[in-house]
Nucleic acid binder design. Structure first.
Length: 477
RNA sequence: CGGGGGGUAGCGCAGUUGGCAGCGCGCUUGGUUCGGGACCAAGAGGUCGCCGGUUCAAAUCCGGCUCCCCCGACCA
């Protein structure tokens, strides 16, 4: 096995290398498509199970809607159509015959879900209607990148309908904060929440909220979005309800989603030159045990290994779930090879049990995040593992936060602005024209208008017109 | 769509003035090893991306096609 290309040398080659070598994914025979391999899919399953509970905790129910959408549905909301038509895949043949109406492979499901909502919603008693689906979607992208942008990807999309705009807005923000909680606590990735500018809003939304994170190369990645759709879709799909006063009103709606892109983010935020580094909460394997023996010691050592494995599996981690433990019994590899192999795969903790450990009733525990190794008494192994996993989870977050903050700059001068790499906090007058000019000159886009930013009088970094708030600029994926 | 790189064993690559298809890793079998990427021995594995041309002879020269990757414009 060769070393990885280093992050500093070529970040994008490093990223591809890790995704392939850690066994997260592989290129599929179809251009722009990928296969998510079991190890990568295991991460997604962990993401799903945590997020699914969080989504349900606010009363949202899961359902499943069709992959195919009648083409006419996409045409009903004109902003939506304009936004998505360049990237639609369209089915024109079925069963050997040309279809009477073409079917669009869903790029997102607003239209087909709302067609159903209009059927299901009649009275204020039917509201709020809170639906989520886990699905695959297809967007015909010009350029693709494993996990970050592929033609087909997996995601979760929530769609809700409410009787008032206030309630819908609140839902939008509730989901935003659920996402933030999940990203920070489960993925150990700090995010900046804010509104998108009008030019970057979801096609058909009144307001788009986003969560932006900084990757290891200081570029920004949009981690998820939550949209306040207002009544744009309910008018297009005629979703009305009768109020208590017997009046007919259009519903107010939201939609929100995160995708398998999050896996790419985990790679780019936590990974290093030795491979992947996974936050314990989402790691498919949290602890790998590597037995080490010479000659005839195998029996004794395996006995200790199996017993430790059992004890660990009976232990619950911070998540309240049993620890995910794997014993690497492969005999064709030396321990040294296995150390490197599991480091590539980002397993948070490695436990070595060899003759020395047996002799002293100890186990050796190595942390993936800080590359440190300690020896603890076998009797304390459980406590130590649980505690250390928890520490790793927190440490990864703090490390990422420090990195983000260290590469965030408050800039008031255009010349300085042009030289910065990272997140740049500057004033912006609010015009789409300035936004576009800044992008064409610097390649930086407005990632968001941060929500927790304070009001502050200043002048637009480009045109000098007054502004009362700083926005986040960055180069983005 | 523009620019760049590439397609030769599972992976990474070499292949000179055209002349038997190679190397490293991996894989298989047997043995010795095992606390940071072990070693020895014996093996298996190829339509050199595709089509055509030049030639006694093409991975190599010429023409055409195709697919993939990377960088930019579009986007979760």
């Amino acid at each position: 096995m060769n070393k990885l290309v280093s992050q500093r040398e070529d970040f994008s080659a490093w990223y591809n290398n890790i995704v392939l070598r850690a066994g997260l994914a592989d290129y599929a025979p179809v251009k722009g498509c990928m296969v998510i391999r079991p190890y990568g899919y295991g991460i997604w399953e962990n993401i799903q199970s945590i997020l699914d509970k969080m989504i349900k905790s606010v009363g949202v129910q899961n359902a499943y809607f069709p992959l195919f959408i009648p083409e006419s549905f996409i045409h009903k909301e004109k902003e939506h159509l304009a936004g998505f038509s360049p990237e639609l895949a369209v089915v024109t043949y079925g069963g050997g015959k040309e279809l009477e109406e073409k079917l669009v492979v869903r790029p997102t499901s607003e239209t087909i879900i709302n067609a159903m909502f209009s059927k299901w919603i009649q009275s204020f008693r039917d509201l709020p209607l809170l639906i989520n689906q886990w699905a695959n979607i297809v967007r015909w992208e010009m350029r693709t990148r494993l996990f970050l942008r592929t033609t087909e990807f997996l995601w979760q999309e929530g769609h809700t309908a409410h009787s008032t705009h206030d309630e819908a807005s609140e839902m939008t923000l509730t989901m935003l904060s659920i996402y933030r909680d999940f990203m920070q606590n489960s993925l150990s990735i700090p995010v900046i929440c804010g509104k998108k500018t009008s030019s970057q809003r979801f096609a058909g939304a009144l307001e788009t909220y986003t969560l932006e994170a900084m990757m290891g190369d200081c570029k920004a990645l949009q981690m998820g979005t939550s949209h306040d759709l207002g009544q744009n879709f309910s008018r297009a799909f005629d979703i009305t309800y009768q109020t208590k006063e017997n009046k007919l009103e259009y519903v107010w709606q939201t939609s929100w989603g995160v995708s398998t892109r999050l896996i790419g983010a985990v790679v780019m935020v936590h990974g290093d030159d030795d491979g992947l580094v996974l936050p314990p909460v989402i790691a498919p394997i949290q602890v790998v045990i590597i037995p080490i023996w010479r000659g005839d010691e195998k029996g004794k050592i395996m006995e200790a290994v199996i017993s430790l494995k059992k004890r660990l599996r009976d232990t619950t981690g911070a998540s309240g779930l049993p620890l995910r433990v794997y014993v690497d019994t492969r005999e064709e590899f030396t321990p040294g090879f296995k150390f490197n192999d599991w480091e590539m795969k980002g397993v948070p903790l490695r436990i070595e049990i060899g003759p020395r450990d047996i002799e002293n009733s100890t186990v050796t525990i190595a942390r993936r995040d800080e590359r440190t190794r300690t020896t603890v008494k076998n009797s304390q192994a459980l406590d130590s593992v649980v505690k250390t996993l928890d520490e790793i989870q927190g440490n990864l977050y703090l490390r990422a936060k420090r990195f983000m903050e260290g590469n965030t700059y408050t800039v008031n001068d255009w010349n300085q602005f042009k030289q910065k790499t990272g997140f740049v906090l500057s004033h912006w007058c609010g015009s789409t024209e300035c936004e576009a000019n800044i992008q064409s000159e610097t390649n930086m886009t407005i990632r968001c208008i941060p929500m927790d930013g304070e009001e502050e009088n200043g002048s637009c970094i480009l045109c000098g017109k007054p502004s009362n708030r700083r926005v986040v600029f960055a180069k983005a994926y």
